[in-house]
């Protein structure tokens, strides 16, 4: 009797849970679905009193206009270069520093770690003017350096935090075994540490890539020339004070999301595995 009650309870809470899950998931997904839906309509169809759940007169006009009217390919290339470069460097430097903070017992590690974490907490808008002044003195406007290097600096605290957490969970014995075998720190790092935290690095890669790709604020400050603009900056030029060309804006956002979705799907398995270990054991 008790067993049956248990199963019944489990099934009921199962159905209840699934219903809630589906509702929340649909609400999360809804804006994206509506954006895709609207991007294939003309603007007069987008705002009908009785909404069209699927475009009745689908049109590619918005996508055409967006690709023609804008330097989207150039923006895409810039975004790709910057995001990829930043991601690579963030992963490398975070791994090195995270490993050092977690495994190499050196004096001042905790203080440094504290400073690094605190830098995460000042909003970027506050730092705009000082950063601008620094960039001006370096003469880095409208260069790839100017966009990429401050972004690397901005993402490093998060990356270091993540890698350090994950490193702490890797058993010490592995490292000690390597050192008994006579390996120096460098050897230990390359042949023991990195393979153990591959998932964490992969997760950091996706997160960083997505974040840099969508980061509008810093990129708009640095790239004022047409050729240097990145995707979010370029898309913002489609909105003026008087009228927003919704169709093109949405088309642009959808196209901009596609590479990110691909990256996410491809790296999905590593992503979850990686974050989990770091966060759980942390």
């Amino acid at each position: 009797m008790t067993q049956k009650l248990h199963l019944f309870r489990k099934k009921r809470s199962g159905i209840f849970g699934t219903v809630i899950l589906v509702i929340f998931a649909l609400i999360c997904f809804f804006p994206f679905y509506w954006a895709i839906n609207s991007s294939f309509k003309t603007e007069s169809d987008m705002f009908l009193k009785v909404p069209q759940w699927i475009p009745l007169k689908p049109t590619l006009q918005n996508y055409e206009l967006m690709f023609n009217k804008t330097s989207f390919p150039q923006w895409g290339l810039n975004s790709l270069l910057v995001s990829a470069a930043v991601t690579v460097f963030v992963c490398i430097f975070s791994s090195l520093t995270g490993y050092a903070m977690a495994k190499i017992r050196f004096r001042g590690a905790s203080i440094l770690f504290g400073v690094i974490v605190v830098t995460m907490m000042l909003p970027k808008y506050s730092m705009l003017i000082p950063l601008y002044t620094i960039l001006k003195n370096l003469g880095w406007f409208n260069t790839y350096w100017g966009i990429a290097i401050p972004e690397i600096a901005g993402q490093l605290p998060f990356g270091i935090f993540l890698i350090r957490q994950f490193m702490l969970s890797v058993p010490r014995d592995l490292f000690e075994a390597a050192q008994i075998d006579g390996a120096g720190e460098n050897r230990t790092f390359i042949s023991v540490a990195v393979p153990m935290i591959k998932p964490a690095i992969a997760s950091l890669a996706i997160l960083t890539f997505v974040r840099i790709w969508n980061d509008y604020l810093w990129q708009v400050l640095v790239s004022t020339k047409k050729d240097m603009m990145t995707v979010p900056v370029g898309l913002a030029t489609l909105q003026s004070e008087t009228v927003i060309m919704y169709g093109q804006v949405l088309a642009g956002c959808i196209v901009s999301s596609v590479p990110l979705i691909i990256v996410f799907i491809v790296f999905q398995k590593y992503f979850t595995k990686g974050i989990s270990a770091g966060a759980v054991k942390g």
Partner: peptide
């Protein structure tokens, strides 16, 4: 060694985060 491993990150963070703060 610890400092050496942390150096690139530290330089970047100091230049572009700490100094602006």
């Amino acid at each position: 060694i610890g400092i050496a491993y942390s150096l690139p990150s530290l330089i970047l963070i100091i230049c572009f985060m700490v100094i602006p703060i």
